[in-house]
Design a protein around this nucleic acid. Sequence first.
DNA 1: GACGATTTAGACAACGGTGTCTAATTTTAC
DNA 2: GTAAAATTAGACACCGTTGTCTAAATCGTC
Lengths: 226, 226
Amino acid sequence: MKKHDLASTDAHVQKGQLAKRVSILEAAADVFCREGFSGASIDEIAAEAGVSRQTVYNHYREKETLFMAVIQDIMDRTNGVLFSILATFPERADNLEEDLAAFAVRLNKSCICNQDAKFIQKLIATEGHRYPHLFQFWREQGPGKTDRALAALFARLAHLAPLEIDDFDLAARQFIALIKADLQMGGLFGEAPSDAELEDSARKAVRTFLRAYGREQKTGSLEAQH
Amino acid sequence: MKKHDLASTDAHVQKGQLAKRVSILEAAADVFCREGFSGASIDEIAAEAGVSRQTVYNHYREKETLFMAVIQDIMDRTNGVLFSILATFPERADNLEEDLAAFAVRLNKSCICNQDAKFIQKLIATEGHRYPHLFQFWREQGPGKTDRALAALFARLAHLAPLEIDDFDLAARQFIALIKADLQMGGLFGEAPSDAELEDSARKAVRTFLRAYGREQKTGSLEAQH
DNA sequence: GACGATTTAGACAACGGTGTCTAATTTTAC
DNA sequence: GTAAAATTAGACACCGTTGTCTAAATCGTC
């Protein structure tokens, strides 16, 4: 009955309260991802969050509510990160291979290596059929938007660099596919590639991409007849 | 009630013992994949198999035994299919784009659209950490072997066709990545692409691949100076 | 038709998880 | 300091699942 007053709901809600909310959310993400929805127990989540079970029920009415909140939270975060990385897409044509490779490394680090992103992928695989609307939303707001944004970036780049792209959406999808080629499998097993591997893999992917879509020299070198 | 294919199930259900084994195995695959290990109940599996619960326990001592048997069975089947498709890799250089695209369609149909393959992928994501040895085995015998075999096939092809490949393993991985570029996402949601989409997607992937690795004409067209 | 093996339905105990409740304790706000 | 709010531990009823057991029904084969 005390929670009225101006600005009641936001900023100065007890920080203890908010800290616990976050703690629960993080622990729940961990456990849901590790055990799946049915495999995860509230007790386990509460323990990992350093909180009593009742507090969990206090913040989130039931297991499913908590699960939804976890998904929503992770989706927001990963989407934000993703678009901040898209903003670093190269804007000049000099050193294109170098710049694209560096961009690819950044993208891979946040899509393949990042815990949150892996959570989402796993949860989609396991619980997608149970909450189709939630994941449809993710698909449209996440990869859907990302692909289109990346396509636009390639379109702009094609003006500045010797690139011959007729279908920008296709090029964007293929770019993403190529830079993930070496890492997907390891990702399934939770293995984290080293920085050197990331670098190397991105470089090779970009080289192939530029060979396919570059307008001029192949491999940047001379060329012997066959 | 069973919408499954495979000659084994329908018609004469004599062979009671073996038929029931198969029936249980198929139902278990269905349910485990749909619900995950902890979400799947023996009762549900028994019902879907048209069998009493006790019969399930009779054939497979406990839930985990049944789970292992399912994995093993699916792994064997998918591996067999995969290698039979690898055997259809093009062996001539005339009509290369056409032949490679057709090969890609076959590969996609059995890797992305095929139920069994999706089961494995999903189960690896969900239960991989619980049975690492099992999935390590799959990784080595499945994708590991496939990639190497495909690399060898490309190596042979490079002798016959105007291809300039210096790293055959890389080329194989990139080929696979490209042909899956358009289908992965839909696959996560259980959507099945039409034959036309499969064709189109494969064609575009192969075109990019050949532009990157082909020795001569780019798109077979003219060329402007940059 | 008869016999042995298989399958079946149902009951059963043990277990673990969910979600509720209460009473005591701590934290936060004023 | 005090009062309100949040947190805690614990007990609780309820439900679903696992795996076992038994007695009846069915199947396969001779």
